[in-house]
Write a protein that binds this DNA or RNA. Structure first.
Lengths: 134, 134
DNA sequence: GAAAAGTTAACGAAAAGTGTTTAAGCACGG
DNA sequence: CCGTGCTTAAACACTTTTCGTTAACTTTTC
C-alpha cells in the first residue's frame, strides 16, 4: 500500500549494483545464485521501464493528439512534420529540430532503425508546446 | 512485456474521466457498477503514485535528498533556496541561476504556473552537484 | 583462450494484484 | 429528505509477478 513498484529484493540488488558489486558478489551476500541475482536485476529494470511508460501515458492524458508519423518516414523529416501540424493548431513547439530527434530517439528507441521510423508513432502535444510520443 | 503499469481498464476509465464523465456514466458505457469504476480509478491512481515513487527511488540511488520547495514559492527564488541548502552540505551546484530555472521548467512543467511553483517539489543532489526534481 | 561476469530458458510454489459484486457509507445541493 | 456523485470494505475467482533452482549459453576481461 505504501511502496513503489520495486520489491525489497530488487532495491537491494540495485543498491549493491550501484556500489559496483558483481552479480556473484551480491549472490554471496544475499545467499542465492548469480542467475537469480540476474533475473531480479532484470525484473527491476523492467519495472522501472514500466514506471516510466506509465508516467508518459499520464502526460498524453492532458495532451491532444497532433498527428501520426507513418512507418518508413525519414527520421530527419519528423521535426518538420511536427512543426507543420503544430502550426495548423497554432501551438509553438517547445523544441528545435535536433532536440526533437533526440527526444524521439530517447523515448522510442525501438522505433528508430538507422534513419527510418520503423513503427507508426502517434505524436501528442500540450498547449504549452510540450511533445510526447505515444 | 510491452505495456506500462496501468491495465486497459484503468486507462479506459482515466480517459473517460479526463473527458469529464461521471463514474456512473462510465459504468454504463463499460457495463459495470459505479462502485467498480471507483475502485478501478482508485487503483489506477495508486499505480501512478507507485510509478512516481519508483522513479524517485531511482534518483535517490545516486543522489541525496536536498530539500523540498513548497507550493507557492516564487520561481525565481528556487535557485537561491537550492544554493543555500547545497552550501550547508558543502556541495557545489553544477548550474547557475538561469539554468536551474530552465531545468526545473523542463522537467516539471506541470509544477510551474506563471512565476509560481504550484506543487511541492523535492530536490535531489549528487556529490557532483547534479540536481534532480522529484 | 581461460576465467569471470553476465544472460537465458524452463519450471514450480508462494505472493501480490485485478476485476467484480454486494452492501453500506459520506457530503451536498435542491 | 431525496438524488447524485463518490468512497469504502469484504469476499471471490482469476492472472501475473516474484524468487528461487538447475543447467547451459554468451560476453567481457586479462
Amino acid at each position: 500500500m505504501k511502496d513503489g513498484l520495486l520489491t525489497d529484493r530488487q532495491m537491494e540488488v540495485l543498491r549493491y549494483r550501484k556500489q559496483g558489486l558483481t552479480q556473484q558478489q551480491i549472490a554471496d551476500i544475499i545467499s542465492t545464485s548469480k542467475a537469480n541475482v540476474c533475473t531480479i536485476e532484470k525484473s527491476a529494470m523492467e519495472n522501472i521501464r514500466r514506471a516510466k511508460e506509465t508516467l508518459e501515458f499520464l502526460y498524453t492524458l492532458d495532451a491532444t493528439q497532433l498527428c501520426t508519423v507513418p512507418t518508413g518516414t525519414d527520421l530527419f523529416e519528423v521535426p518538420s512534420i511536427i512543426f507543420r501540424e503544430a502550426e495548423k493548431i497554432n501551438v509553438k513547439v517547445k523544441y528545435d529540430t535536433i532536440s526533437l530527434i533526440n527526444r524521439l530517439r530517447e523515448s522510442r528507441a525501438q522505433c528508430c532503425k538507422a534513419r527510418q521510423v520503423c513503427e507508426d508513432i502517434v505524436v501528442y502535444i500540450t498547449d504549452q508546446g510540450e511533445i510526447y510520443f505515444g
